[in-house]
Design a binder for these strands. Sequence first.
DNA 1: TTGATGAAGTTTTTT
DNA 2: ACTTCATCAA
Length: 556
Amino acid sequence: MIRPEEWQPADGLKLETNAMRAAIEQAGCLALMAGPGAGKTEMLAQRADFLLRTGTCRYPRRILAISFKVDASSNLKERVQRRCGKELASRFDSHTFHAFAKRIIDRFRPILTGTDALDPDYTIGGHRIDRKQITFSDMVPLAVQILENSEIARNAIRMSYTDVFLDEFQDCLDEQYKLIRAAFLKTSIRMVAVGDTNQRIMAWAGALEGIFQSFAHDFQATSLNIYSNFRSKPRIRRLQNEMIKAMDPKGAIPEEELAGEEGTLELRHYPDCQSEAEDLADRIASFINEEKIPPSEIAVLMRQQPSQFGAPLMAALTKKGIPYRNEHDLQDITTQPLTRLIIDFLTVLHDDHAPDAWQRLMYVVSEFSDPDNPNDQSSYWQRYIATTSRTLKSQDDYQTNLENSRVFAINFIERFGNDRVRALSPEYENANRISEIWNYTWEKLNELVAAESSIEMALKTFYNDQVVRILTVHKSKGLEFHTVIFMGIEEETFWSKNESGSAENRCTFFVGISRAKERLILTHADYRERPHGVRMWSESRNPQEEYLGYTEGLEG
DNA sequence: TTGATGAAGTTTTTT
DNA sequence: ACTTCATCAA
């Protein structure tokens, strides 16, 4: 334990003045505005280190961090563990809004009465069933209701935490803010909200306007700004800065601070989407093969519908054998413990040299093994796998016919036992969820087997993230890449119905261009294929002229 | 059957 | 801005 005055940022990192100030604030609430690449996650991790290491968050009380997405929430948890170690980080709870709401519902469920009453084994599904099932959109309002009606519930939450972190706060929805208020308003809990109003791209889904001002008012928070950007090279930053001038003039940075010729910025114009696709595929191939950029550091962004707007590019990439992933096709089950168990089991059956899969599999199998049961020791499981593998390989079509493997996987899971499957994750209390994940896993395997030459190859690519990522701008929020190709920036793809829609479009464009670290390529085409044939789009309209007009060094 | 007209959707996360 | 779907009139 050290005194607050003695604290220095963990791992020898330096924080700029306002980030440092935010990290060591002990008195009140903060609203921290920080642009792209300012190191918001790092600041929060350092603050967690400060609070825990100095005892400002006094044992046994904890820190709560609330994010929107699972991966954002686990990234933050991971970063905190890296900065202050697992021991202290065990008092850092990182949840999504939904996970936080579900914990409140599960803990104080009896408080819900009348039409909202729920059975203990309630499930979450596509529609509401009285007492039995709620939907995702019911979760936050039900938690709000519990907190508003029960002092016991409110106090239990408030006693647990000294500090609360709110990430990507500019996209906080109405209901979510109600939950924050119901839980923490008029308490001594220190709240820190972090975000960037220039990246507010969820207003159409109900993200509140002026949320930072409301927060600053409701929680009497001090407002701070961070202006640095450690992500993008100067050429790309100058484009971002030009947009900031239009969106929020006070946030713009003097030009002399953005001098330098590092980074690449290109605007490319094509007659049609076919030549666009061919050229981009060529260039992506050369980034990967000649420049040795890892495929996962290259992203193709578009405003909407990657499976439609990205179709010609994906076809061209396939033709060149460049691995890619359309993030919109994918049900993300790769982190599911049940999925990992199945994939690891099949991997050791098909591949004799898969030490990682073998180790993970043995770990899971032995974790809850019964020491008194001779059929439940690692030696038993090793023999079982060896025998199963031999039997599988004695079948002629085992390399391509997934059905054989499926039969053995079912047998394995039966031996492994339902209880142990259920123990793999809290979600698996719900039997429907288990069969849902089981089905998704086989669906995805089937797809991969169809695309690859063998089951062994399909298993190898199951977790493969060494791929070019194709995604919407919305999905890219919070991510960064060496090379970003922002495809199809024609005015026609940035439709909007009203004035606030165009403001949000500007934010969407800003999020897109601020994902790039080293190279940003913007493309537009005169003709773009749509489902019902080729359509001509006006050549007279200049893409996003408003922002690009100034950029002298643009080619193409 | 065809064309004309108008409304709704497009961008997302979540145990 | 453009697609898709429903509805109605010819």
